[in-house]
Design a protein around this nucleic acid. Structure first.
Lengths: 196, 196, 196, 196
DNA sequence: TATGAATGAGCATTCATTCAT
DNA sequence: AATGAATGAATGCTCATTCAT
């Protein structure tokens, strides 16, 4: 474990540094959008028109880059979760939240990777994940107390099944918006308590 | 891109050639079972005790090897599908089939990859996939006619959702047998027609 | 710790492989002789006119290469030690041995490195080192019993001091043969028991 | 190879510049003491809490930094040499001087490097080295005239052998103070004229 | 046919040095 | 003067693929 130069986390960046950082992030984002989640440092540097060293300065490891990309979306998702919690209807608020989650996961192939990673590079990421997990757990529990979700599933199951749905949408064709809506409906119906 | 000699698909192999082929397949299978889906030619050759060249002779590309591995399982799955078709109960036969499919997919990390591949290297694979697809389509249609599966899902949806479930099982912990059963139940309940 | 392809240790090499191996060794030897003990794989490959992969195939790590280079000399040195042991004169046989050791160390800058390395890549090297150490220990003990070497020095001291002498010769100019003889004489005189 | 601005050697530094210079030197000294002789500019800058540029301004090359560090010790050593010269006993003053030299060399891994460098970056260094060399030469000559050191060794030999002893101490374990004393004793005994 | 040695493109990573701010 | 972001050459290492034996 070598000592590394700290990534410039604190304080506002110099204008040019910020520009480069953004370029790198933009390229990475585009790569993820293209479905390439390998995030190769040299490739990113090349496409961003900066030296490799610059990429490493901002993001010492692939994981740092990934988290930087994803945290934005994680925050957006957390907002949705809080909004859902503020709503009064246990079922429809859960559905709205999962709908939003699925959209974000489909837009950002890195999101699921971060959600499922056992370890995070930045405390911020862990914190966001924990909060998100807790909030979705409360949403789920409320729905279960209301008797609209079967009691034996936990927040972790929801997360895994959502990643499963995301995967199912990704691997095939069709209009994403339509397909994901159909699959989400199936999942949610499957989560309702068994009537019999 | 050089034109390659055709792999020796036709005609019976010499005894030693056949033995080598089997060794390679055995090793590859074991690697997949260990969860290593990279299928590196050199590694396979080494562990199989043959030269890399031999691996390439039998399987000019990763895809060829993968298909050879998977076809066996594809055939087993097709058998299950036919057996399910022979049964009289639309619902439970569908369930049994999907249960078997999920087990196989979890045991063979390459199965889903082949099922979702847009193109196959061998006609045999395409044929098996088509037959499997058709049979599961008939199983599904029968269940839909019996009113136990919602009408708007197609065989392709089932396949994608099954891969989704597989993914959901893989990414997390827990006893696989138990988790996969729970997730499959949720999926199947979600597939039932909406009561209201 | 990744599994590596075993270096081709056993069995005679193919003619071309042997040729390449020799080329690599020759280049490495030359680099050491030039005083460059960094042994960079890419550089060696380039100068040997082979691909990097070839160097790595024969010598998975710098240490393997170094030991391959040095073991030859280690063996030669061990022969000298045995020959010295076979001789009857405690003092002059010790001197002859150290004289030979110094010559070899000066001819091969890697020898000292291997002698001082806490760990070896190959058992063969460890074995040679151990045998050499034991033999020189016996030569030393015999000289001490004969009262011609002060009793408080051990085999390890001899080895360290010899490396010190080697270093002293290397860092300066003058005819190596002459200088090394002078410094060795000083060392050996210093090793004699204090008369007073 | 661009011509560089001269380092601001002449004229007093601004207070803050002087402070930075000292910080850099302190950090570099500490690194050397820790046994890290790589002296990486970025690392030094980081640990000193200054920018790399500042390190480069004060010390355009590794050699400049090294000499700045060592010169202090060189001066201390020169003092010892003069003190030894002032003493009346040829032998014990020589011994005291070499003892001090060895201690300094062991404490400062850069000292030997500078002593053995064929060229210096700063005239000051060359001057110190020359003076030290001359003084130790006189100490040696006096000891030789007194018949306690063999006549054929020169000041350069002493310097080289001392570096050899330093090396011998460094490469092995044991309590440095004890080991270095033992090896120095052996060297000094070796330097005495041959009795026979 | 089989072998496995050889190739070399390609990715990760480091660090001395420059230069815009 | 000082800063530290940026650069990119250099090195380590892997692995898919070819081809001489």
């Amino acid at each position: 474990m070598k000592k590394r130069e700290a990534p410039p986390e604190d304080g506002p960046l110099r204008a040019d540094a910020a520009r480069n950082r953004e370029r790198v992030l933009a390229v990475a984002r585009e790569l993820l959008a293209r479905g390439d989640s390998s995030l190769q440092m040299n490739q990113i540097a090349r496409e961003a028109g900066v030296g490799v060293g610059t990429v490493y300065r901002h993001f010492p490891a692939r994981q740092d880059l990934l988290e930087a990309l994803v945290n934005e979306h994680l925050e957006a998702l957390l907002d949705k979760a809080h909004a859902a919690e503020a709503s009064e209807e246990p079922w429809s608020s859960l559905r709205r939240f999962l709908r939003a989650a699925l959209d974000l996961q489909l837009a950002d192939i890195g999101l699921a990777e971060i959600l499922n990673a056992p370890r995070d590079a930045h405390a911020r990421t862990s914190q966001l994940k924990a909060e998100l997990f807790a909030t979705s757990g409360r949403l789920l529990a409320r729905a279960q107390r209301a008797g609209v979700v079967r009691p034996e599933v936990g927040a972790e199951d929801i997360q895994r099944l959502m990643c499963g749905i995301e995967h199912a949408v990704r691997i095939g064709g069709g209009e994403r918006r339509v397909v994901s809506e159909r699959y989400l409906t199936i999942l949610l119906d499957g989560l309702r308590p068994t009537s019999g």
